[in-house]
Design a binder for these strands. Sequence first.
DNA 1: TTATTGCTTAGAATTATTCTAATTCCTTCT
DNA 2: AGAAGGAATTAGAATAATTCTAAGCAATAA
Lengths: 147, 147
Amino acid sequence: MSSLHENPDALTKRLTDTGLRATPQREVVFKVILEKRDHPTADEIFARVKTQMPTISLATVYNCLETLVQNGLVRQVNFDRAPTRYCPHLHEHAHFHDESTGAVHDIDVPPEVMARLRELLPDGYDASAIELSFRGAAGVRRNVAQN
Amino acid sequence: MSSLHENPDALTKRLTDTGLRATPQREVVFKVILEKRDHPTADEIFARVKTQMPTISLATVYNCLETLVQNGLVRQVNFDRAPTRYCPHLHEHAHFHDESTGAVHDIDVPPEVMARLRELLPDGYDASAIELSFRGAAGVRRNVAQN
DNA sequence: TTATTGCTTAGAATTATTCTAATTCCTTCT
DNA sequence: AGAAGGAATTAGAATAATTCTAAGCAATAA
């Protein structure tokens, strides 16, 4: 819940704090992911970034995303074989993939549930990452205008 | 734990029971998945199948896999963007992806844990599928020569 | 047997992503 | 300030898994 929205320098700082060079491309890619938290794909990010920086290339978007992911500033989310999506929420959480709308929603997972999942592993198995995702239909939403 | 290994007709029966035509190609693809439960990729399945049926095409393997999956005879397993793997275990379970060997191990998940996971979803969210996967290193294996 | 439907096949097409090689941009050193 | 060195960016080619297309073939139905 920091002030990344209000204070653009916080974003720059997060880059430099992790030892990264805060290039304009990285900043705008990072900003785009943070400002609309809808788990966009690389293509969608590319499209959004181009409106602010028309000369950027798709390869650069992929490069920036890779460095952001490798430095733990952004998370990757995969569903089946669909294009990789990018998520700015760093705390441990799961994802719900709404098949009817294509939207992806974050699902909170309490630490004790995570711990319970780890307990499922046999002795000697050490999980560096746990991925939990749901697929289905979200929001029955009776009595809500839809358009 | 049925007799699919000993009784090849059980395999045929499972195909016809689901309303599928038991073509030779489908049977051999299904057999290959069942007889070595190591979560092979489509390419690996193709290679194994070719030894028994050299004329089969990769497209057919993909077609067979698709019908098997759609009819619930085989499960698909995805890890990140790696090639899709196929799993003959139908009961609800998770997967552990060993990063050092590339192997995939099945992990049992007790029903009450599955139920606990479903409880994490907000009202109105209905999950038709839950995917749980671990990534990491399996089998610490001290005192084993490594080369 | 003929018609109909479904399956298989080879190869082309697609698509997300990565690679390559050239250029440009910073940073630092002098 | 100018030059050197390293890192980042770029356009476009390459890759790889998967899907599509069109044609032939096989099984079943009439």
